[in-house]
Amino acid sequence: MKCALITGGSRGIGKAICIQLAKDTSYHILINYNSNEAAAKDTLAAVELAGGTAEIIQFNVTNSDQVKTKLDSWQENNKEAIIEVIVNNAGITKDGLFMWMPQNDWQDVINTSLNGFYNVTNHLIQKLLRNRYGRVVNIASVSGVKGTAGQTNYSAAKGAIVGVTKALAQEVAKRNVTVNAVAPGFIKTDMTDELDEKELKKLIPANRFGEAEEVAHVVSFLISKKASYITGEVININGGIYS
């Protein structure tokens, strides 16, 4: 059984990725969530409705012991299974001006996006290398390539994801493991619910927010065999707001 693990897979872009992979691939999908079990169950139902198979796996990506314990016990119960695809999607925002930013808001955002990437990917990467095949896709952000005022913590975390994508890609390419990132702009999800869409879309050349599915299509392509020669790449999905 070949599997794809999507962190933060219960809502928003993560949910859209789970559903898209169910439609486009034969991967058994591991839907990771941290606290919202009801949302994870919704995603599971949607994946099955799309014709895929999936299961839910709960852990907090920031807690390295928990990540190891949960993934190891899952592997123990599924000895024949191979996690071939890792989509590092888990992320949070705690926006605010830098001069007033409490250390916790800085730390929490970086912990989730950046240390979460390390905890999950570092634990699984050796298996990908041993199997001589794998796909890692990291969800970055326009904030990580352009920088966004009021989001220094998020920009720092996602900018670091861009850097690690490019570096790791070079280390593992010989073993047929690709590492890429997608950098979404304003996408309609829970995370952007509180933004003033009417005002902000004036800044976007495409004159609209993106859909989570539009990000999911690119992720689905990057994990496919068609993308074998693409690695270390960051693909902007932002309606032209920054390139």
Rank of each mutant, 00 (worst) to 15 (best):
I6Y: 11
G9A: 08
I17C: 05
C18F: 03
I19Q: 11
L21A: 09
A22M: 09
T25R: 13
I29A: 09
L30G: 08
A39R: 09
A45S: 14
V47D: 06
E48F: 02
I56T: 13
I57R: 13
F59R: 07
Q66Y: 03
K68N: 03
L71S: 13
E84D: 15
V85F: 07
T93Q: 07
K94R: 15
L97K: 08
F98V: 15
M99S: 07
Q103C: 00
N104F: 01
D105P: 06
T112R: 03
L114G: 00
N115I: 00
G116L: 01
G116E: 00
Y118Q: 02
N119G: 02
H123L: 06
Q126R: 13
K127P: 00
L129H: 06
R130H: 12
V137H: 06
G147L: 01
T148S: 11
T148Q: 10
T152R: 00
T152Y: 00
G159L: 01
I161V: 04
G163P: 04
N176V: 02
T178M: 11
A181K: 09
A183R: 04
P184C: 04
T189V: 08
D190C: 05
D196W: 09
K198H: 07
P205V: 08
R208E: 10
E213S: 14
H217L: 12
H217Y: 14
V218L: 15
I223L: 05
S224F: 08
K225D: 15
A227S: 14
S228G: 13
Y242C: 12
